[in-house]
Write a protein that binds this DNA or RNA. Structure first.
Lengths: 248, 248
DNA sequence: CGCGGCTTTGATGTTCATCAAGTAAAGTGG
DNA sequence: CCACTTTACTTGATGAACATCAAAGCCGCG
């Protein structure tokens, strides 16, 4: 999971017989390259390298604040973040949870000048930050790259929209089952995991009250669908949870 | 509102002194051009013309059926359509209502091979259909065009997502107020309008039951916020509706 | 150690879906 | 065009699902 995209290697001097080497950047090895940057030439990768930097955030830190100007293109390299809209007094609404290689700035990067949502780390995270103008320039110049970016962007929006539709139709038990399976299957790839969010945040994510999140957790524990100890959750009966998620 | 994008003008023969004219296509005059196709050269516009056709649908007709392969890029030239996911027995869920110049195929055009939602005309509509491969080719070749398409696409997704978030937080009265103002301000630009959808469809759009849509309509009429006669609605007290929409 | 935030459970009331039943409107076949 | 059927609309009554309020234990942190 660790990767290091930030260092350049310069030769301080070189013998006559040697051409001046191009700047070598570890972006060439970055896993992210395989996601969308495949279509970029070596030179283009180098250009990105020049304008990019990594930034790390600890759990709980704000990465983007609603209203901030969009001048950079962000993707998540490590950790877990939440996208959310702030509301009055703890009434935030979580739009999405993003994991490594997601474009976290994607809503509105290309459609607005300012963020209309916030981003915060829900686990220690590092974000790769690229000048938006560089990305735009590259989109203009490299058509394959443009298509690939559109694909990723479109996928992310689709996912959010369809998530929302699905959740709206379920009632509380269904939503809890859904979110438990989401963490287990799509984030941690494990039946046992530590919830990275508070009960309250779960409530904000699936649109219900904190009390009811807890109540249904307890209910599921009573029915031996899950076991809970603090933040640690183990899925005991995934089939039943799937049925509950699908139905109700 | 009327426009005609479909006819080519060919000269059947031309004198020696005249160069063979390029195909002239009325796309050059199409309003849509100003929306995104500004950045295309005359030749590129011609290419689009060659691969495109218009198709009209009467109110109620299906335009796209869930599961269908995506091979074309659609935009709405005239009318009103609904994007929706089919559910069991009238339990459809309406995702969005699109108006002229919206990209109606936008969710998933670039991220999937098959539609995962349906489109139907809720008013007599005409759709301009362009080969998706032609659009993709143009995105690859013309960077400015690519950026413009991304912008439009991103705007549309953003709108849907934020709509959803807003609606989720409101209770029934707030949703009805919201949707009434939506039709008045964003679709018909008029305080009096004919609802293009049934009460049931409104319920599917803002996620409630048909009975409650009717109940709250009646309530609003009783309180002199609106007047209703059949499908015709007049907004009498927009300020109050705005307040109701904002609050609850 | 004490304060504030997170968690938990119970009691209560509101909001909303469901059921039922009837009227109006719109489409259908003779 | 009329009887007929179906679909849309409307209102009321009931109960289920859920939010809100209240109270107490827990945990981490300055």
């Amino acid at each position: 999971m660790e990767h290091n995209c930030q260092s350049f290697v310069f030769l301080l001097s070189y013998p006559d017989w040697m051409e001046e080497p191009k700047k070598i950047c570890e972006c060439r090895q970055c896993e992210f390259r395989s996601v969308v940057f495949n279509n970029l030439s070596g030179d283009e990768i180098s250009l990105i390298c020049l304008s990019k930097r990594d930034k790390s955030f600890v759990r709980g830190e704000m990465i983007i604040r609603e209203g901030q100007e969009i001048s950079e293109f962000l993707y998540l390299k490590r950790g877990l973040v939440k996208l959310f809209k702030m509301g009055a007094e703890g009434k935030d609404q979580i739009i999405n949870i993003a994991k490594p290689f997601d474009f976290v700035s994607l809503l509105s990067v290309f459609s607005d000048t300012h963020y209309n949502f916030s981003i915060a780390a829900i686990d220690d995270s590092t974000v790769c930050i690229i000048d938006l103008s560089v990305i735009k320039e590259m989109i203009e110049k490299n058509g394959k790259f443009a298509l690939r970016i559109m694909e990723k962007l479109s996928q992310s929006s689709d996912k959010i929209i369809h998530n929302n539709i699905q959740l709206n139709q379920k009632q509380l038990r269904g939503r809890i089952a859904y979110i438990l399976l989401f963490f287990s299957n799509e984030i941690f790839y494990n039946k046992t995991f530590d919830l990275p969010v508070s009960r309250k945040e779960i409530a904000q994510l699936i649109d219900m009250t904190t009390e009811n999140v807890i109540r249904i957790f307890s209910e599921f524990r009573r029915d031996n669908l899950i076991s809970i100890s603090g933040k640690t959750i183990e899925i005991l009966n995934p089939e039943m949870l799937k049925r509950i998620s699908a139905h109700g």
